[in-house]
Simulated scan of single mutants.
Amino acid sequence: MTAAPAVKAPAAVEAIAEAEPATEQPSGEEDLDKVRAAAGCPVPEDVYDVDDVRIYCAMPADVQAFLARENTCQHFAGEEPYDDERRRELEEASAKYCEGREKIFTDLVARHRGDCAVRAALIGINGRYDLDFDLDLKPCGG
């Protein structure tokens, strides 16, 4: 099978792909708001990881949808079931937002394999959320 030719990414996407990951996370809601304001497009409140907010606007719609879904999954995964009702709510949220993430992520990697900037973003997402499902995720040219 022949790989799809790489499509030239917009300069903004290339800059994101080449940028070093943030060494410091903003310390509070005000900083997250600043990152959102600088994002270049409306970023849904579901996307609250600063690195995800930074790349959101440069990503294709399917990656944007995954970022929102994964941030929601991570939010609910970090909550404690303090009673039976909350346990049920968390189980339902996990089923809705976390189940199937392997297939969705694997499909994104396959779909965007020829786009170096999106691939670089997916590598970053993979690292943040430990999503590597035995995929061969390497940067372009690497």
Rank of each mutant, 00 (worst) to 15 (best):
M1L: 12
T2V: 08
T2Q: 13
A3K: 07
A3M: 06
P5T: 06
P5A: 14
A6D: 13
A6W: 03
V7R: 07
K8N: 11
K8Q: 13
A9H: 05
A9S: 15
A9I: 03
P10T: 05
A11V: 13
E14I: 10
A15Y: 07
A17K: 01
E18I: 07
E18M: 14
P21N: 04
T23G: 02
Q25E: 14
P26G: 02
S27C: 09
G28T: 08
G28R: 12
E29A: 13
L32F: 03
L32T: 04
K34G: 08
V35K: 15
V35L: 15
R36P: 06
A37V: 03
A37R: 09
A38Q: 15
G40H: 11
G40D: 06
G40Y: 11
C41W: 04
P42N: 10
P42F: 06
V43D: 02
E45C: 07
V47H: 00
V47F: 00
D49G: 04
D49H: 11
D51H: 15
V53H: 07
I55K: 14
I55M: 15
I55G: 11
I55C: 11
Y56K: 07
A58Y: 06
A58V: 10
A58W: 02
P60N: 05
V63M: 09
V63G: 08
Q64K: 11
A65H: 04
A65T: 09
R69F: 00
E70N: 06
E70P: 00
E70G: 01
N71W: 05
C73N: 10
C73R: 10
Q74S: 15
Q74I: 07
Q74N: 13
F76P: 00
A77E: 11
G78Q: 05
E79W: 08
P81W: 00
E85D: 13
E85C: 03
E85V: 08
R86M: 12
R87G: 05
R87I: 01
R88I: 07
E91F: 01
S94D: 11
K96T: 10
K96Q: 08
K96Y: 08
Y97I: 03
C98W: 04
C98E: 05
C98V: 04
E99A: 08
E102M: 07
K103C: 03
F105G: 02
T106I: 01
L108M: 13
R111V: 12
R111G: 12
H112I: 02
H112T: 03
R113I: 00
G114I: 01
G114S: 13
D115H: 08
C116K: 09
A117P: 00
V118D: 00
L122C: 11
L122Y: 08
L122N: 09
I123M: 01
G124S: 13
G124K: 12
G124A: 11
I125Q: 09
N126S: 15
G127Y: 02
Y129E: 01
L131Y: 08
D132H: 07
F133G: 06
D136H: 06
K138T: 12
K138E: 12
P139N: 03
P139R: 03
P139E: 03
C140W: 14
G141I: 05
